[in-house]
């Protein structure tokens, strides 16, 4: 957007109105709690971001075999992959998170050796369940996208590689995967923003990310709008950064 486009008369009026709204918010709402909660908010923000990054990467890595199995796998691999994607996409994420956290939690007392195992310090925490649930969810949605991406790679190229006697794995690594990834790249930004929008759900299983911090402020200060508005602003900024990053990334990838 050029500067000139930004300074059309009606946009200037809208910006002035928005500025008045911001000033009104700053003057008449309560913001005195910010210094007290700022360290907690930063911690929460950081947790939101790393959960987002980790689950997107892990989910994408899991999506590749899921897509591949559905696109070319034998039926005994394709069917489970298909069922997995359908179930993940057909049920609410909130329910999946609760099933993992409270469902598994209700099994622990019945299996005593778990408490003695080395994994227990991690199983006691909430974040492994959050990461697991969000990873599976991302894999489920992205697996479906990857299936389409793998199927749409030009078959002639694969046949050519085959006739050169290229080993199957090299073929996958050098021809198939790069093209499939380039096919899904335009959708990845959107999927990542969807994943960002899913992160506040993990607050319901006691993970203290930025949404949980805003809930804490709401209940401590007995105020409603201020933390929610600030929270919405945070998410807008993160979503904006994601969009910019992916645009930059996309421009770097050569297209035909």
């Amino acid at each position: 957007m050029t500067l000139r486009a930004l300074f059309q008369p009606h946009r200037i009026v809208m910006m002035v109105l928005f500025a008045i709204f911001v000033i009104w918010c700053a003057m008449s709402l309560r913001w005195d709690w910010i210094p007290q909660y700022a360290p907690l908010a930063l911690e929460g923000l950081w947790r939101t971001i790393w959960i987002l990054i980790v689950t997107c990467i892990l989910g994408f890595l899991l999506a590749i075999p899921l897509g591949l199995a559905q696109a070319i796998g034998p039926w005994y691999l394709a069917a489970p992959a298909r069922v997995f994607c359908t179930v993940i996409r057909g049920t609410p994420l909130l329910l999946q998170i609760w099933l993992l956290y409270y469902g598994l939690g209700s099994l622990f007392p019945q299996i005593p050796w778990i408490r003695g195992s080395d994994l227990w310090p991690y199983l006691r925490q909430a974040w492994p369940y959050a990461v697991l649930a969000l990873t599976l969810s991302y894999a489920g949605y992205e697996g479906e996208v990857m299936r389409g991406a793998f199927s749409s790679v030009n078959k002639g190229q694969l046949e050519a590689a085959n006739s050169f006697g290229m080993p199957r794995f090299t073929m996958f690594r050098r021809i198939w995967l790069p093209q499939a990834i380039r096919n899904v790249l335009p959708t990845l930004g959107g999927e990542t923003i969807l994943q960002l929008k899913a992160t506040p759900l993990v607050a319901t299983i006691t993970v203290v990310e930025i949404y949980a911090v805003s809930s804490r402020v709401r209940s401590d200060m007995l105020i409603v709008y201020e933390p929610l508005l600030l929270l919405a602003l945070f998410y807008l900024i993160i979503a904006g950064v994601i969009t910019l990053l992916f645009r930059k990334f996309e421009n770097r990838v050569p297209t035909r």
């Binding site: 409270y102 939690g105 209700s106 622990f108 006691r124 925490q125």
Partner: peptide, 11 residues
Amino acid sequence: DEANQDLVAGR
């Protein structure tokens, strides 16, 4: 109730 549940689970 969720806190109780996690107390039972040992979390």
